[in-house]
Design a protein around this nucleic acid. Structure first.
Lengths: 218, 218
DNA sequence: ATCAAAACGTTGTTTTAACAACGGATACGA
DNA sequence: TCGTATCCGTTGTTAAAACAACGTTTTGAT
């Protein structure tokens, strides 16, 4: 149970809650774990759930399928990350499917119970609710920034928005990014070589300087 | 106060809470209102707030500015809609500014208080917390869908993703959309005429049919 | 120190989308 | 009913991004 505690902490849901309170909390949340084989569906489009899941081990993919059956991998979720948080909070029907890519163990926590003050001595309940809200809000803020980047029309605009956010996150106009060019291009939905060319132009235009992953905005 | 009640209900935060309980709730949330003139800043980048705001009257814009000063209007927020929900929940510094476009009245609610069980008889507290979480999660789901659309490379893929979502929302492959072509194109970040051409091709390819705003996916 | 693989930037070519302009259809008010 | 404004689709043109291929630099393991 010690290993699990560490993984659960990674989700940010249990910040401010002592280790020795965790077991109580988990009971209070109706926690249970489930194992999946490789290539097993955890959820299919159309399902509902009141529980969010924390990946204890293994790996899953979130997949969306459009009307004509075209599939998109929305996210690659690994150890210590959560799934279904949004759906559990809204009680909405899932419009995605979730499938394992390897043997996977998931701990489920009932969100409905989290939002109800339980009868027992859960003075940490408020804390958990705040953590959950903060987690939801953080996701939302992150997506907002991503939307701002992706909604830009040109490669240059996307790059500008992306680098501005990186600079703000780093707290400086002089910073290092944790992605290589290919990852950055995929993230922005553009071609790697086209982006490389654009970065070159921007440097020549004098609005930034860079070598490899080290950028300075001007 | 009656008019306000109706507007506040529109936010979805007070679902399941009776009208005569509202005033108690509002006190409990430290509610207060503030008026702004036209072109006044409600918040500037770098500010913090513990309160979400509900627009009682008027209109505001959410604006993001990148490192080089390029401005983007992220959202146009009107009566009955909320601002700063995410920032209030995370206590993060705002990375956007919010400015009024006309005389505007805003009611602020302290999110921190919402997540704490108060001493008085607020049995509706849990309800409010659930509503707030649901609201956050709904925003998140909506943004996820939008991201799925915008992250597509080609116009056709974007249109496919968009129409699939519309169909799912309508619960049928035969549906009517509430946007005109220009709005739809802006939403997907593409050119209107290019999109129109693409829609024509898709119809010729037999994967959908449409007249005006009436679509049928095949 | 050497080698192989990965990462990056550059160039030329092809494909795609943006842009501009226009005509027909539709909606709406006078 | 007429006239006007809006909406929509189409076409030809221009601009931009994707694509493919390649040489250099960097990285990391042996």
């Amino acid at each position: 149970m010690r290993g699990r505690t560490l993984i659960l902490r990674n989700t940010g849901l249990f910040e401010g809650i002592e280790d020795d309170e965790m077991d109580t909390m988990l009971k209070c949340l109706g926690a249970f774990t489930r194992r999946y084989a490789k290539d097993e569906f955890l959820f299919r489009r159309g399902d509902r759930t009141d529980c969010l899941g924390v990946i204890l081990s293994g790996n899953v993919l979130e997949i969306r399928e459009d009307w004509w059956g075209n599939r998109t991998v929305l996210a690659d979720v690994g150890k210590g990350q959560a799934i279904c948080t949004d759906y559990a909070c809204t009680s909405d029907v899932l419009d995605i499917s979730i499938v394992s890519t390897m043997p996977t163990e998931v701990m489920y926590l009932d969100v409905g119970r989290a939002a109800n003050v339980c009868n027992s001595s859960c003075e940490f309940h408020n804390r958990l609710v705040k953590n959950l809200m903060r987690s939801l809000a953080r996701m939302s803020l992150g997506m907002n920034r991503r939307l701002d980047q992706l909604s830009k029309r040109s490669t240059r605009e996307k790059v500008c928005a992306f680098l501005s956010d990186q600079a703000r996150a780093a707290g400086s106009s002089d910073f290092i990014i944790g992605m290589n060019r290919q990852e950055m291009a995929d993230y922005l939905g553009v071609d790697r070589s086209a982006m490389s060319t654009e970065l070159g132009k921007m440097q020549r235009d004098g609005i930034l300087e860079f070598q490899r992953n080290h950028f300075v905005l001007k």
